[in-house]
Nucleic acid binder design. Sequence first.
DNA 1: TTCTTTAAGATTGTCGACAATTCGTATTGA
DNA 2: TCAATACGAATTGTCGACAATCTTAAAGAA
Lengths: 234, 234
Amino acid sequence: MTQDAFSETLITTASDQVFVDMRREIVEGSIEQGSKISEPELAKRYGVSRATLREALNRLESCYLVERKANVGCRVVALTAERLIEVYQVRSALEGLACRLAADNMAPDEVQSLKQLLNQHLQTQRVKEGESYYQEAGDLDFHYRIIKGSKNDHLIHLLSNGLYQLIRMYRVQMGMVGPRVSKAFDEHLAIINAIENHDGELAELLMKRHIRASQANIQTKFNLHAAQNERAEQ
Amino acid sequence: MTQDAFSETLITTASDQVFVDMRREIVEGSIEQGSKISEPELAKRYGVSRATLREALNRLESCYLVERKANVGCRVVALTAERLIEVYQVRSALEGLACRLAADNMAPDEVQSLKQLLNQHLQTQRVKEGESYYQEAGDLDFHYRIIKGSKNDHLIHLLSNGLYQLIRMYRVQMGMVGPRVSKAFDEHLAIINAIENHDGELAELLMKRHIRASQANIQTKFNLHAAQNERAEQ
DNA sequence: TTCTTTAAGATTGTCGACAATTCGTATTGA
DNA sequence: TCAATACGAATTGTCGACAATCTTAAAGAA
């Protein structure tokens, strides 16, 4: 029994393993967005029976990475502009809430530890300029810690097991290593300060604004991406 | 192929049917909250194989009505005071968002139809005082229409396939037929007016307040319920 | 007695095969 | 040439049986 990094999923059964593996492949694009999933084919590829694979597919559906139709089958979600907007509207509302709750419920040592993490990120970034570490894993870590700081288990589950994989999928496949790094750092700092001051209202507002900026950033990349694809199709 | 009333679930397969049936039994309390679910027993009861039942269990887990542990099994969620608070915090944020979006995106005829529905409810309620129709199905219908009015498919799915069954479970099992009917009606009216005026900010605020009042109401019943159970155990 | 160990029973996880449905193709008719 | 239909291949849904794991309870040691 081992543990998965991104959602703290305990891996005990074979279907757990297939679930985590497929999730990574979908998020990273090894399994192409919008593509049809053949149960017999994938079962053979992962070396498990169809029952086990179907169990994994069910859980991928729960976190919005695949869509099923009865008697027709499964396909990977398509990354559309509309869906991006929808998901970010929901994310903004939920993480805003998480931030407000965290201002009340986060333990002092959790806050200190998060501030420390931010400093660490800043230095790492200054030393190895251009590395994408902060932007990808670091940003996720920051958000994840605040989400956990809300102490609302339902909310935590909704975000980390539900929305975040889809958000990661957009970020990874759009190649998010943009120039928003230092700006995002300042925003993160302001948010953690508001939380430290137990100013939930401000923390919520700042987080919503931060997420809106992030959305705009991804949307730009998305349009660029879409334009490239159009050109490629001609 | 038929259709389910509460979440517009298309019922095509056997597991669909089991899912909808079990969901109703759990929400209504026929299958007791917190109880362990035996796969062989329930499979026999519904006249399906374990594979079919497990498919249904997976989907019940997706809407938070059962919880699974690997190699241990499934139990129905326990209705605790803590969970009630958590769920309502999330509900407030999400339906607040839905309301704000609905102020922009709801079609004029949808708004008119909803106003008409409200009037109809008012009259039904006045004529048959004491009937619980409005409180249960009517209230749900009102909220559901606004959620759909947001035109955000992800949000719609999150609420109607995810949270609402759990909320219904609390309401039904706490016996929500209280005296909040006429007050809720006024609040509903204010909300739909704000939506009609495209005042998303106000609509969001009013909805959040409305949900907070509803939460307080349920919480009161819950404590009453808990006190009764304590007395019964002595 | 209390704690640990062990074995039996029951439950869940996984598998391969069969049944039901859908999809692509070819054939037929206008 | 096009539309509709019917057939066959492939895919999904469902089943019953076996393997792996957990739980319970009894037996033994401290």
